[in-house]
Computed example of a mutant assay.
Amino acid sequence: MSERQQQFSGTGEVRTGQEIDPARLEAWMTENVEGYAGPLTIRQFNGGQSNPTYKLVTPKQNYVLRRKPPGVLLPSAHAVDREYRVITALHAQGFPAPRTFGLCKDDAVIGTWFYIMDCVDGRVIWDATFPDATPDTRAAYFDAMNQTIADLHMIDVDKAGLTDFGKPGNYFARQIARWSRQYIEDPDAGRVPSMDKLVEWLPNNIPVGDEISVVHGDYRCDNMIFHPSEPKVLAVLDWELSTIGHPLADFSYHLMMYRMPPTGTTGLVGNDLKALGIPSEDEYVAAYCRRTGRTGIPDLDFYVAYNMFRLAGIIHGIRGRVVRGTAANAHARKTAEGVEMLADLAWAQAQKVGA
């Protein structure tokens, strides 16, 4: 079992400072969740850096609760209401997103906004090498991930009722501005030289052309639930960063695994992909292009540089929460150490295209 699998798998006792009053929650669920019947036992999932996530155990059914973390939050962060909306809409379209049961915007219930969804039985894989799989099944797992993200990007936004889920067009410009702003406006986490360079370079080098789709924003193997014994995606989780955006931003974020080290991430660098049965980056890109009707992905290095910058910005935010004492995960401090490495790696991708 990998270090990440050991750290983040399963549930434990609810962490100090993130407790939930079971009586208040039970009263709300009795009123708002169809078919709910207690008694209720609350456990907290070990994974999840941003929004604390809990397993709610009852005699008849298990649920999952996602909430905003307690404490002072950055503007627009931890948008559990947006998660709830997109999961509900995509589930109705037949996409593998969990069924939802209710959203609560009343802080008086448990202290922050939260929503309830189905607890999907299966496995979360925290290591992109799928260490327990054979070469043949590894190839099938990668094909399932590739098919699922292609399916997401082919969903009709209007038909799904998500036309106004994000601003159409200029996605890269808006996202670069957003993450630059959040980076600059979080002085607790400090400044990073490569991040400063990227804040200046990225907005002036955005490729021409635009497309629109639902984007997940954090699509990787550990944000999926796989079938207990088959290479099949049962549910895609953690939609906090989802919006209407550019599908190639979403896909290239997922593709970063091919250019990231395995230390502290789901990176594949340093592994013998052929021996493991994992498709090469070129093969994986070709499969996605075939499924989405593309002839290729020009400017891929820019997209990867942008996504590494964005991920560094996210982890920079985690560092800020560690400093402020509001980080949701016990391993957040270790994760926050990766900002400089990611920013340097992002700048190296930018240099491939002339930075």
Score class of each variant (00 low, 15 high):
317 G>I: 01
73 L>H: 09
262 P>V: 07
230 E>H: 07
230 E>P: 11
186 D>R: 12
89 A>K: 09
36 Y>S: 09
213 S>V: 07
95 F>P: 01
197 K>S: 15
255 L>C: 13
197 K>D: 14
166 G>L: 01
235 A>E: 08
272 D>P: 00
138 R>E: 14
342 L>N: 08
22 P>C: 10
352 K>F: 00
141 Y>T: 11
137 T>G: 10
90 L>N: 03
182 Q>V: 09
153 H>G: 09
293 G>M: 00
214 V>P: 13
285 V>C: 11
352 K>W: 04
203 P>M: 07
87 I>D: 04
151 D>Q: 11
92 A>M: 01
9 S>C: 13
197 K>A: 13
297 I>N: 11
300 L>F: 06
137 T>V: 15
129 T>N: 14
70 P>R: 13
87 I>H: 02
1 M>S: 13
327 A>C: 06
324 R>G: 09
43 R>I: 13
28 W>K: 10
325 G>M: 10
51 N>M: 03
5 Q>R: 12
192 V>T: 14
313 G>C: 07
275 A>T: 06
74 L>Q: 05
114 F>K: 03
322 V>M: 01
307 N>C: 03
29 M>I: 12
19 E>P: 04
272 D>Y: 01
280 S>T: 02
164 D>S: 00
298 P>Q: 10
152 L>Y: 01
89 A>C: 10
113 W>E: 08
165 F>N: 09
2 S>M: 02
155 I>C: 06
56 L>G: 00
61 Q>E: 14
47 G>L: 08
278 I>G: 10
64 V>F: 07
83 E>F: 02
104 C>N: 06
293 G>T: 10
291 R>F: 06
63 Y>N: 10
4 R>Y: 02
207 P>Q: 05
122 G>R: 12
30 T>C: 13
316 H>C: 13
352 K>P: 07
352 K>Q: 13
